[in-house]
């Protein structure tokens, strides 16, 4: 089971109105883009962190670990954005043959703003997914007259993720107890087998799903209730 999903069901804010939670998190994403001030972004970021850790009672360590993954991507991309080639008014630069590479005042402030904006968006999204079960989100989307196709896709993707993870887990476990990950060569081989098997099983599952869809009078559209 996904950790995020588990917290969505057991956190302290679970029964709080999902509409408000969705609005809060959307606000946390949209506002920093309108207000061009990185202190404002940081306020939002801290607000979201307080909500998640202080009120929803998600353990700090897990939360931080979850943030680490997107943060590492963020840092790498921010660095590449901050570095400019052949600009003017460098704060710091070095020269290779005829090319100047370095950080300008302009790129620094751009990078900073981008960093804080993304950070506030990240914490806002994390606030939503850690406190709101996906079913609640789907219900709101459903009421909001969003295209059915989009919601269907979301419902099925969500369900399939769990089937996929379960299958992968089962294969991995079976391989592990048969010493499949003892050393590097074994690991490589096992991983290749795992991927191949998973691919085949996805097709088998698809077939079985089709059969039960037929039996459940499916007519080409996943219907969602009110």
């Amino acid at each position: 089971m996904l950790l995020i999903d588990r917290y969505a069901y057991i956190n302290e804010l679970r029964n709080y109105s999902p509409q408000v939670k969705l609005l809060l998190s959307c606000g946390g994403i949209v506002l920093p883009r309108l207000v061009n001030n990185y202190y404002f972004d940081l306020v939002i970021t801290i607000f979201m962190i307080v909500l998640v850790i202080g009120i929803a009672k998600i353990p700090f360590r897990t939360y931080f670990k979850m943030l680490l993954l997107p943060l590492s991507f963020l840092l790498v991309s921010i660095i590449t954005i901050m570095i400019s080639v052949n600009g003017n008014a460098y704060l710091y630069y070095f020269k290779i043959i005829n090319i100047y590479i370095g950080i300008t005042m302009d790129s620094l402030s751009k990078g900073m703003k981008l960093f804080t904006t993304v950070l506030s968006s990240l914490t806002s999204v994390y606030f939503l997914i850690l406190t709101t079960p996906i079913i609640d989100i789907i219900r709101i989307l459903n009421k909001s007259k969003l295209s059915n196709l989009f919601i269907e896709l979301m419902v099925l993707t969500y369900r399939s993720i769990f089937i996929f993870i379960e299958e992968a887990n089962n294969i991995y476990l079976a391989q592990t107890i048969k010493f499949g990950y003892e050393n590097n060569i074994n690991s490589l081989r096992s991983m290749a087998l795992l991927i191949r098997n998973l691919f085949a099983r996805v097709f088998i599952k698809y077939n079985e799903m089709n059969i039960s869809l037929e039996c459940k009078l499916y007519d080409g559209e996943f219907k969602l209730g009110d």
């Binding site: 996906i134 079913i135 789907i138 419902v155 099925l156 969500y158 369900r159 599952k205 079985e208 799903m209 059969i211 039960s212 869809l213 039996c215 459940k216 996943f222 219907k223 969602l224 209730g225």
Partner: peptide
């Protein structure tokens, strides 16, 4: 094979 939805109610109502 026969559960599609993410929650029990919706699945039975399918």
């Amino acid at each position: 094979h026969q559960l599609f939805y993410s929650n029990v109610f919706d699945d039975i109502a399918f």
